[in-house]
Design a protein around this nucleic acid. Structure first.
Lengths: 230, 230
DNA sequence: TTGACAACCTACTCGGTAGTATGTTTTTTG
DNA sequence: CAAAAAACATACTACCGAGTAGGTTGTCAA
């Protein structure tokens, strides 16, 4: 809470799981939250999906809410790790944006469990959050998410300036852009066979749609950086 | 359950609230479900938001799940009522699609509570649904939703044919198209002042984005039919 | 007027769940 | 190797919330 706001865009906030068990719990929780939602999943559910009991979870997390927040944090961490490097590409703004979109879209499908939690978190806002500390973490998480969206918004505005697009409302444009890329969480489910390629193909289609929505086109060489991932 | 599949696109399934109290409960439930989600909302919450008690609700609905389903049904009813007429416009496919999009987008903002429930319903799928009858209603509701999406998909494919667009994957295109129009539920909140106009403006921007995503443009006269609503 | 029924309310039961307190086992540290 | 601490498991408690049973009030028809 010192001067971390300035570096918020850098992966300073990263809370990479200390132990492996910690990470396992996060993954299991994400799976459960994804399938049944936050309040419909019991701690016992998460524990059982690990072949363990409550004790193990409460040894690592204070409360169910804190567990949720940790999953949320991890989700944002994944997204930043995927997108931040692309956001630093200092060539054409169009290419930069396309790369960011592709990375985000792929991460969206590759880490569905966590991404679903992110969407839930947006909705879950001012409902419960009993503790004062929890409210505090909540606004922090929201801020992180805002920073992430700002990443896209600035890239979009740069693209608009570069390509002479006139966006009536840049905010709405950003929201729409991300809505397209995020949409896969609602209908895509990995089939386990040729996942990576399938995801890249879909990501390309989504980004194409989103870029066209802005009024421009996805550059031909924008997805080069993805190939060597395979 | 006889031959209603053939007429599914017609508002045959409409279950307009018998009593006014019934409708009030639906509205209140939609509000609660929107704010806290399904399983985080108690029947007492809904009752209390009506200044009543559980008894009133259980007199009209068998269970909490049935109440949710009723809200879902009402939501779909709203959407069909808004979009179906536009889907019958027999001029250019582009105009038809644009009109459908505008109607849908406006309905999305004007009936936020119910629309949020629709999105939850998509996710809520095969989780609980204890009763066999409930599972049955669930597949029926999913079918209704599929029919609604098909409405858009056929309109999109007609537009693509008419305007010589080549959509790699019409399915993905449809999903993206609707994702943009639906996105407002995540960030838009009516301010109560000049709502109707604001919503129309936003809807126009969203449809513009979505149509461009497909590779075409929103016709200038597409939104004529909206003006006389004011 | 009286019955009958709809539209509620009140007061309960009871299963499920978050959280805790207290063991038990394994690992680490000195 | 002993002791301490970490990493769990077990066995509780306390509460909340879905569903129910039975009572109460109004309305309407005969």
């Amino acid at each position: 809470m010192s001067g971390m706001e300035a570096q918020m865009l850098e992966p300073t906030f990263v809370v990479t799981p200390p132990s492996s068990s910690h990470a396992d719990i996060l993954a299991a929780a994400a799976r459960c939250f994804k399938e049944n939602g936050f309040s419909a999943t019991s701690i016992d559910d998460v524990a059982h999906s690990l072949g363990a009991t409550k004790g193990r979870i409460y040894h690592h997390f204070r409360s169910k809410t804190d567990l949720f927040f940790a999953v949320y944090r991890r989700g944002m961490e994944i997204n930043f790790k995927a997108t931040l490097p692309q956001s630093k590409y200092d060539g054409d703004a169009v290419i930069r944006l396309a790369r960011m979109g592709l990375s985000h879209a792929v991460a969206m499908m590759a880490y569905q469990d966590f991404q679903r939690v992110l969407l839930q978190g947006v909705t879950m806002h001012q409902s419960g959050s009993t503790t004062a500390a929890q409210r505090e973490t909540l606004v922090e998480l929201i801020e992180i998410r805002n920073n992430y969206e700002t990443l896209f918004r600035t890239a979009i505005e740069a693209t608009a300036k570069e390509a002479q697009l006139n966006l009536n409302d840049p905010s709405v444009a950003s929201k729409s852009f991300l809505a397209v890329l995020n949409s896969s969480v609602f209908w895509y489910t990995p089939r386990g066979e040729n996942d990576k390629n399938e995801q890249i193909t879909l990501a390309r289609e989504l980004v194409t749609f989103a870029m066209r929505g802005l009024g421009t086109d996805i550059p031909a060489n924008a997805h080069d950086f993805l190939e060597n991932n395979k």
